[in-house]
Structures are given as structure tokens and as C-alpha cells.
Amino acid sequence: MLPHEWIAQYGVLAVFLNVLGSSLGLPLPVMPTLIAVGASQAAGAGVSGPVAMPLAMMLGAAVLAGVLADLVWFRGGRRYGARTLHTVCNLSLSRDACVSRTERFFGRWGVRLLIVARFMPGLSMVAVPLCGSSGIRLRSFLWHDCMGLALWASAGLLLGAAFAARVEALLATLSTVGSQAAVAIGAAAALYLAYRYGRRAWAARMPRKTRLGIH
């Protein structure tokens, strides 16, 4: 089955689950998925018809998944306040830097930060509960969150569509390599996650060692 044929059948579900999991905090590569989907839809447009409608469906799935996940963090921020913010920041390498940076940006831009937060790694997950703890109205939050999600997802889909030929060639190469590529990608992902966990654990221990006078 060709990539664009697979995406025509499962693409909406793949985009929905990918964006949902990433927005909830799972380390999933969403932008590569959006680029691959956009490229495959553009490559298959000559066979199945115009590409605008399939891309609109993918965009709708991305926005819906992102909003559903963000509502979880927004409600958590509204109910539990700073505890939710610190829980989200525990997923980053530096909790203190995560909190201070986000509060600085939010103090300057307010809820409008959601429009561009998805383009800044790690910022969107912290900005969402901060909106809840800051008392932002639900209607305003949903409007700005949907706008930011739409811009972010559109960027990935349109980028893939613009470079459809090159992305399709890459997908074809990966499918030719087959299981070896899957093993290599899985190993690289595991090493990256281990690195992130090690850095986070080391950063969490450093302040304590400093307080105790351990060098």
C-alpha cells in the first residue's frame, strides 16, 4: 500500500491520536507526522481529486485533538493552580526555568500567547494550565487555542504539501529499507528519551547538592 493510500484510510486517526498524545505530554513527533500527511495527500491529489478537502479533514482532526487535550490541562490549572503548572514543568529539563520563562511570556502577552505557543517547544503545555490558573475565560481560551492549533497544524500540512515529491521519495526509501529503518528509529528514540530523563534527573539533583554544600 502506497503512503498516500495508507494515509487516505488511516490518516485522520493517526493525526488525531498523535496530536492528542503529544498535547497530553507524551514525547511524540507530531510535526513530522503532519508533514508526511500533507505530502502524501498532495501526492495523491492527482489520483483522488483536489487536496483541499483531505487537508481540511486532517486539520480538523489536529485542532479537535489539541483542544480536547488542552482542556484537560486548562481544567487542571483552574482547579489545582500552581500544582498543575509544576506537574507539567516536571516534563521539561528545568522546572524552575520552565515556570519563570512561561510566566514572563504570559505576563507580557496574556492569552494571546496561545496563538504562537505551539511553535515554541515546551511552551504550549505550560501556557495552557497557566491560562486556567490565571482565571482566563473558557470562551477566550478556546478561541485563542483553536487559532494557535490551526496555524501550527496548517504550517506542517502545507510544508509537506509544498515539498511532496521530496517527502514521498524519503518515505519510499524508508519503506524499502523496511524493518531495519524501524529498528534504527526506535533505538534513536529510546536513546533520546534516556538522555532527556538523565538530564532531567541530574538537573533536579543539582539544587539539593548546592544547598548541602556538596561539590
Rank of each mutant, 00 (worst) to 15 (best):
L2W: 03
P3E: 00
P3R: 00
A8W: 03
G11Q: 03
A14S: 08
F16Q: 04
L26M: 11
V30Y: 01
M31Y: 11
V37W: 04
Q41R: 09
P50I: 01
A52F: 12
P54Q: 01
L55F: 04
A56S: 14
D70I: 07
L71K: 05
W73L: 14
W73P: 05
A82D: 15
R83A: 15
H86P: 03
H86K: 13
T87E: 08
V88N: 05
V88H: 02
S92I: 13
S92N: 12
L93W: 10
A97Y: 06
A97P: 05
V99E: 11
R112P: 04
L113K: 02
L114A: 09
M120F: 12
P121N: 05
V128M: 05
L130A: 10
G132F: 04
S133E: 15
S134W: 06
S134K: 09
I136F: 02
I136L: 07
R137H: 14
F141C: 04
W143D: 06
C146K: 02
G148S: 03
A153T: 01
A155I: 00
L157Y: 04
A162Y: 09
F163L: 13
A165F: 03
R166W: 14
R166G: 14
E168R: 04
L170F: 10
A172P: 06
T173W: 14
V177L: 10
A181L: 06
V183D: 10
A184F: 11
G186F: 01
A187F: 10
Y197S: 11
Y197G: 11
G198V: 11
R208Y: 11
R208P: 07
K209T: 06
R211G: 08
